[in-house]
């Protein structure tokens, strides 16, 4: 809590001096996620301060990706891939936290334009198929993303402390994509934005995991030869060791 007060003072100082009247300021203590061999997912605390009371919305969007979607259909008895579509600009991660439920904020067009909430999320691509069919694919993608732990069906909570400080937790599974994640926080009052802030989270592989990944993707052939030599050395030394033990 002490830390919080210090941060609050620090932030409110910034609010009033450097940026003029900004109403909202927010950020992370640590905005880097390093995926090393020991990585099993991570929780980041995001916090900030507001000057004026209002509704708070925090949106975290992972790097937008081009994806190929296969639809499974039951043929006779078996579930098989039946058709595929390409979608682009699909966020690899999407999380929304609000200070009160989204549907109570009553600003549908605003939410739609800014793609806030899963139902307002839009993807590009697969324009060749008709609207109703395309909506099915879109919902299917969102459903799969939820099951994969990349999207969240429930909006997160924002804890507001002493009417000015706020805090929320953003969790990431071990399967997250690399890249820059955009964190937008908005302060809404009477259907208009009275304060906003954008921060970033950098997700990147690091340490041994990064070295292996870069080697494998950039110099595939050499990596393969290396993998074979390593396995052969291992196999050979095991054989030698067993012989020594049995001798």
């Amino acid at each position: 809590m002490k830390l919080f007060i210090i941060i609050f003072l620090y932030l409110s100082f910034f609010c009033n001096s450097c940026y003029g009247k900004q109403n909202l300021i927010a950020g992370f203590l640590d905005n880097n996620i390093n995926i090393d061999v020991g990585f099993t997912g991570k929780k980041l605390s995001y916090f900030g301060a507001i000057d004026i009371q209002g509704d708070l919305v925090i949106i975290v969007t992972g790097p937008r990706k081009k994806i190929k979607v296969f639809k499974k259909e039951k043929k006779i008895w078996f579930w098989l891939n039946s058709s595929s579509r390409i979608f682009v600009d699909v966020p690899s991660y999407y999380f929304v936290a609000t200070s009160r439920p989204l549907n109570q904020m009553k600003n549908d067009s605003f939410l739609k334009i800014n793609q806030i909430g899963l139902e307002n999320l839009r993807f590009e691509g697969a324009e060749e198929i008709e609207e109703i069919e395309r909506a099915k694919w879109r919902n299917g993608i969102i459903d799969s993303m939820k099951k994969m732990g990349n999207y969240f069906s429930k909006n997160g909570n924002i804890d507001i402390i002493d009417e000015h400080l706020f805090k929320t937790e953003i969790s990431f599974s071990s399967d997250i994509a690399e890249g820059v994640y955009i964190v937008d926080s908005l302060l809404l009052k009477n259907d208009s934005v009275i304060g906003s802030n954008r921060s970033f989270i950098n997700v990147s592989k690091s340490g041994l995991g990064e070295k292996v990944y870069l080697f494998a993707t950039e110099k595939g052939l050499l990596y393969g030869i290396f993998a074979v030599i390593a396995a052969m050395l291992f196999g050979f030394s095991v054989n030698e060791a067993i012989r020594k033990i049995n001798a």
Partner: peptide, 12 residues
Amino acid sequence: VNPNLVYVLEFL
């Protein structure tokens, strides 16, 4: 059995 993911995603 019904698959967990009916729409299978592959990041390109």
